[in-house]
Design a protein around this nucleic acid. Structure first.
Lengths: 159, 159
DNA sequence: CCTCCCCTTTACGTCAACGTCAACTTCGGT
DNA sequence: ACCGAAGTTGACGTTGACGTAAAGGGGAGG
């Protein structure tokens, strides 16, 4: 527990762990979402920073803007918020919860339709060209590589 | 049934129904996501166009790019896709399904934390300043209006 | 000492998804 | 005939979230 809480991380370690780039982490810092310690000039991330980053990444996947994530982190960290700030933040936050519930339904629906489509494609392929089926992924990659020799796509940016 | 399928819609009608702008619909058309009929110069949307728009809006809320949505619509419309296109599309689509499932979990978690935060704020407010609580929304709006007289924000853009 | 390699900052570039004019045309109502 | 509302097509601007190139620091290994 304390052993974990005392761990520190380099920028690269966190990048690998969360599939982000160093540029992104520095950018988040610029925006006030992170504030790692420094050893000289080099950033040293604590496990608390790591937890924050985890929240950030989750927020990004969901589709929140960095500004929204910033607001939420402040909220969860229970920083200096007086009642007035809370009175302002509460309805906004309630609205976000509603939006999230809508999104939940959207995604459930999307998964359903998408899985049907996948199954249908698989059946169709199995019927007409079963040879393309088991290694469909390899086949696709092969085609892609013939098209353009761009091999550098470590992660989907999306958004 | 046929009665519904024969209905047509003006651009404004669809805008109001889905909370989009006319500019957005035309933009989607530019990108090949919609292709309404024309009466003279004016766009006339069919119920099939409406269904497509519904898919588009859902996709946007989920966070898909227009390019991805385009690909999906083509898929679901079962347009001219030969087996080769399918062999390419299938793994990509499977990957998206996985991403969606990840997103589903993310959102469940986010809803949970967010609701806890809301409840906590509500309790704290009720304890210290119950006067700000029932009309918290009005209070917030009031504060906002004092800050900046910007009253034109019909919809959240997000993205 | 030199060479790598990873780190840093600063600055400008990019891409998606529209928003925002500007400058018309078209149509229903008075 | 005229008005106003709603429609159209460009063209340019904006915002968010980084990417990328330039220019350099610092320490570990040979």
């Amino acid at each position: 527990m304390t052993a974990d809480d005392l761990r520190t991380y380099s920028i690269r370690q966190l990048c690998r762990e969360f599939g982000a780039t160093a540029r992104a982490l520095r950018f988040y810092e610029d925006k006030g979402l992170l504030d790692p310690a420094r050893k000289g000039q080099t950033r040293v991330y604590s496990s608390k920073d790591r937890a924050r980053l985890k929240l950030i990444m989750r927020g990004r996947r969901i589709g929140f803007t960095l500004a929204e994530i910033h607001e939420m982190i402040d909220l969860y960290d229970r920083k200096e918020h007086n009642v007035h700030q809370m009175a302002v933040a509460l309805p906004r936050h309630r609205a976000r919860v509603d939006a999230l519930k809508q999104q939940l339904e959207d995604i459930k629906g999307a998964i359903e339709t998408a899985e049907e489509a996948c199954d249908w494609m698989e059946r169709t392929l199995a019927e007409h060209r079963p040879d393309l089926l088991p290694g469909a992924e390899d086949y696709a990659r092969l085609l892609q590589e013939r098209m353009n020799p761009d091999h550098s796509r470590p992660f989907q940016t999306r958004a």
